[in-house]
Design a protein around this nucleic acid. Structure first.
Lengths: 213, 213
DNA sequence: GACAATCTCAAACGTTTGTTTAATATCAAT
DNA sequence: ATTGATATTAAACAAACGTTTGAGATTGTC
């Protein structure tokens, strides 16, 4: 009698085992035998529960995206009457937390970032929709912060600066990033708040300097 | 009699064909048969000239790195007596040009960026060395711009903001980035200058706001 | 032209891969 | 207890892969 690795169902164990391995070694370098071993399942389990390896991949990505979208709806604060700087701060913070949520296993964030380089066709639409909405929201906030005298080109440049600053922390924690481990900032709640404040203030100063010309 | 695809040597043609395909589909998804077909060579050519597929990979990466390091030595301007803002501008500009050099085929930049996610062991040392030198240089410039009253933590936050802003443009042009093609800014010389100036000014304002607290 | 070194070629080899098969086990409902 | 749907298993399959082989072509040198 063999010991069960966890009390979850086989398909759940497969999704989580696959997620860890995909994040670790990439989709192409992970074999279904690896996955099934890690999940304590038979080699045929992937095909029985998901059809094939590709569909398991889709299931893993959906599993992550669904969780993140409900927990961190980036647009949530836009309806309130907070000042635009406060709203911008919320968006920056959620953007970082989507990758570094301490309550979520790290492989989920890693896998999502990897999709920046090689997006899965099934995810393209979901990501693009969300992206378009977020980009529009940030553009509006930038205009509100800057006042009226800022042209669209300048708005887009500022948009790039905001997103870029967030991307830095996301990328520097990619598992194979060429950065010595000891130089990586630990992304706990305290540091995330600190970084969020920095990005916000840095950005506010940058935007203001933009319309004083 | 079969037509030669180019007048370059077989090993050169293999490196360039492999580079294009690796950038397009990734190392694992590219077969040596694909490479040899594209290079107009026999399947055995990879093994004859490089030993195996992995060593060809290394050869491709070396081929790119050597070219970039000699053409864009990021530290080159640090010795001069230009004002620190000017030096920072040069570093930003070179950082962007390393990826977007209009005189260099695009796959070279793409392949290098992909290494951010899954660094090849043979490249880790080269990249880390360069990175450490560049990071030190930028830190010094930030301190010079800020004056004396800025602590090390603040310097590192500003460093992240600078690198992040550059990364944004590099990442948004990854071949599979979830960004509609029509929204990508064309990275020609004119726009690179424009973006460089923006990042510089945005950063200068950000740094100054940092030491007025 | 003869020789040796270098290179190219079609064919085949041994593994690894994702997938399928058919038999067996599990379990709820009647 | 029997039945039928669902799930798991060991074994095998076919295709694709990186690599090797041995024979032939090409090239440079004397």
């Amino acid at each position: 009698m063999t010991e069960k690795i966890s009390d979850k169902s086989t398909s759940e164990r497969l999704i989580e085992a696959a997620g860890v391995l995909f994040a670790q070694k990439g989709f192409a370098n992970t074999t279904v035998r690896d996955i099934c071993d890690a999940a304590g399942a038979n080699v045929a389990a992937v095909n029985y529960h998901f059809g094939d390896k590709e569909k398991l991949h889709e299931a893993v990505l959906n599993y992550i995206v669904e969780g993140i979208k409900t927990k961190f709806p980036v647009n949530v604060s836009l309806g309130s009457d907070d000042p635009p700087g406060e709203k911008l701060r919320n968006m920056i913070r959620f953007f970082l937390l989507r990758r570094f949520d301490p309550d979520r296993p790290d492989w989920q964030g890693i896998l999502l970032i990897e999709q920046f380089m090689t997006v899965h066709p099934k995810l393209v639409d979901v990501i693009r929709e969300e992206r378009a909405a977020n980009v529009d929201a940030i553009r509006i906030l930038i205009k509100q912060i800057a006042g009226k005298d800022i042209d669209d080109e300048a708005v887009d440049l500022c948009l790039g600066s905001i997103v870029g600053q967030c991307l830095f922390y996301i990328l520097m924690h990619a598992p194979h990033a060429p950065i010595p481990e000891e130089e990586k900032i630990e992304m706990n709640h305290e540091n995330i708040e600190k970084i969020t404040d920095h990005i916000l203030n840095f950005t506010l100063a940058g935007i203001k300097s933009k319309c004083e010309k």
